[in-house]
Amino acid sequence: MITLSGVTKAFSCGKPNEFTAVTNVTLEIPPRQVTVFKGPSGSGKTSLLTLIGCMSRPTSGRIQLHGLGVPIPFQEDTAVPLEITGLPERFLTIIRRSIFGFVFQQCNLITGISVLENVMLPAYTSGERLSEVARRALLLLEQFGVARHARQPVELLSGGEAQRVAIARALINNPAIIIADEPTAHLDSKLSQEFMEIVSGLKRDGKSILIASHDPIVFDSGIIDRVVEMRDGTILDDRSVR
């Protein structure tokens, strides 16, 4: 479970162009559910996801992770909720790498290297043997039906294939939580539907999934558990769909 209390994120503090992306958000996100953050662009949903995903730190407020079920190297007692707010970047990164997987609006694949290498990249720095990582990566690529492209450079992939490679990359470290930011923005309806099917599969596997989107295909989908509606950095509406 993730709890946020009074979380605020401001940019360019004290300067004329100061703006607050997220204002005083308090929220609880239970595990093994699909939660959609809905709202127009600039409503703060992406910023909120970067805060939860340990990519940036809130200006004020607290974020805690409970019952991760994954050992974190420096955490002595796993039963105690992990406060991620004041952690140095080094540790935020360790958490991000082991607990979160990311799917971005653009697929954000690195061009010039193969599909397989792209999927393996998040695991390079954890000190695992690359042969072992490659084995897992191939399994994932197979799962998403793109294994035949494993040795090709990513430039040759179609939009849908690139999306699936990006999902495979998000899953390489076997994270408990998947964060997807506008995942269907560049996909047509059919591919978007396919994406939601993948999401439902991930949910079946016991993953928690957080999606920021203003695409009806996403937030009207039957697999969604909860919709959080945002505007101007605050939560307008928070309702369970089930």
Partner: peptide, 19 residues
């Protein structure tokens, strides 16, 4: 710009500054 984007991607998927 391409290189900068690449580093951005690496950092977002779990690479740390010291990496």
């Amino acid at each position: 710009a391409e290189e900068r984007k690449e580093i951005g991607i690496l950092k977002s998927i779990g690479w740390e500054t010291s990496d």
